[in-house]
Nucleic acid binder design. Sequence first.
RNA 1: GUCCCGUUCGUCUAGAGGCCCAGGACACCAGCCUUUCACGUUGGGAACACGGGUUCGAAUCCCGUACGGGACGCCA
Length: 470
Amino acid sequence: MTVRTRFAPSPTGLLHIGGARTALFNFLFARHHGGRFLLRIEDTDRARSTAEATSVILEGLAWLGLEPDEPPLYQSTRAARHAAVAQAMLEAGTAYRCYCTPAELQAMRERALAQGRPPRYDGSWRDRDPAEAPPGIAPAIRLKAPREGETVVSDLVQGEVRVANAELDDLILLRSDATPTYLHAVVVDDHDMAITHVIRGDDHLTNTFRQVQIYRAMGWEPPAFAHIPLIHGADGTKLSKRHGAVSVLEFREQGYLPEALCNYLLRLGWGHGDAEILDRAEAIALFDLTGVGRAASRMDYAKLTHLNAVWLRRAEDARLTEEVRRRLAPLPHLRLDAAAMARIASLMPGLKERARTLEELADSASFLAHTLPLPMEEKARALLAGPAAGLLARLAPLLAGAAFTPEALAAVLHDFAAAEGRKLGEIAQPLRAALTGRLVSPGIDAVLAALGREESLLRLRAALVPVAAG
RNA sequence: GUCCCGUUCGUCUAGAGGCCCAGGACACCAGCCUUUCACGUUGGGAACACGGGUUCGAAUCCCGUACGGGACGCCA
């Protein structure tokens, strides 16, 4: 039997990282077992579903490299099939028409709650003669669920979970307007799509009992279930916007790499020995449901950022250069011409070691494309205002005559430091300040070489002018 | 309220009766390296929720308690 999994989001909002992780686990599980990963858009709630939300989900999945193996199935296109199955259950006697109005049900719930009983449908139409049906009321179709015994779910993550059938009431399959409820539509679709493993958030665990009852009523074999724990915010409560970024596209915006986010999400709630850094191929090879924990895990942005730094260092320079260009393009006072891009590309090895996100990377590369005057960090300005200025003034002519290769420049700086009786850092730091406007950058010889003689001397003199004048 | 699930360093986790006076990673602190920063590297502090059992032996099995989460809709 070929493994078939699915991710089934409802397009009512963003693709948040909880959903992304669910998709990732489904994808990885399918790939690990040589199966297929499918996507179903649960858009039966027409009022809340939007095309925008659907495209956000598709875009997020594509960015994460979690594209489905078949075109997505839109649940709303399957209403006729859902109704037909409910009808078949009606005829088979495993379902019945219920004429209670929403108001009556509401009152029923409130009464039960007031008496300290669980709020459940009392089954009043279960065995009632349909001839007693009140006129003018369209019935809903309810499952005639077993009242005795228990329903058992053998969950691949949670283990064997059971509940007494007496705890469950007769759920609605088809609303009075003939549209399917979520519980019913999911079962019919998973069955028709030949889904073998349903991997989803454990907020669905208790729904599963009722879904299993539907499978049983139809004589269908239920798929295997795996309910994975939810992701919480740093404070342990349900993840929401106030915890920081939650939308997948938001992470992209902030400069996170998809492979880093996937790596992080994989390790959140799943472990395999001491393995921490995993690429897609390794994840597919190692992932299995047995490694999934049962407790909710908290979102840790610091760890995500660290993983992002790791993946940033591993990323191709050309790709990062393009990402930097895209992020720098809208900014003022930058000239992203071929020369500037060549500088950025040549310094990328040193740049990417010092950044944790694409945002930081772009920021740290901006000096290479900046038009003069160069913006100065306060500390850089202070350094240039000190005695270092004299050193740089004496250094300038030496640089003017030097070959602009990192090796030759390093030699010039070393010799100069020796001649001045200074430590190299005492030369390099002010020079860095003059050339970059900052105190942190790739190696100073590499920076000089990347900028080239003309630009380097231009920046050096520009930095010294105010000092000389003051 | 009822039902279901969970609980190992601050966080993510390893651990499936002796290998654990509990290992790794992030974060934190200190040293080294370094041309600053970062990387790297070395070291440090830091946890089996609590109480009972079972066993020669329990983080691991059982039962309670506490705390947390989830579900109880003609929402998904």
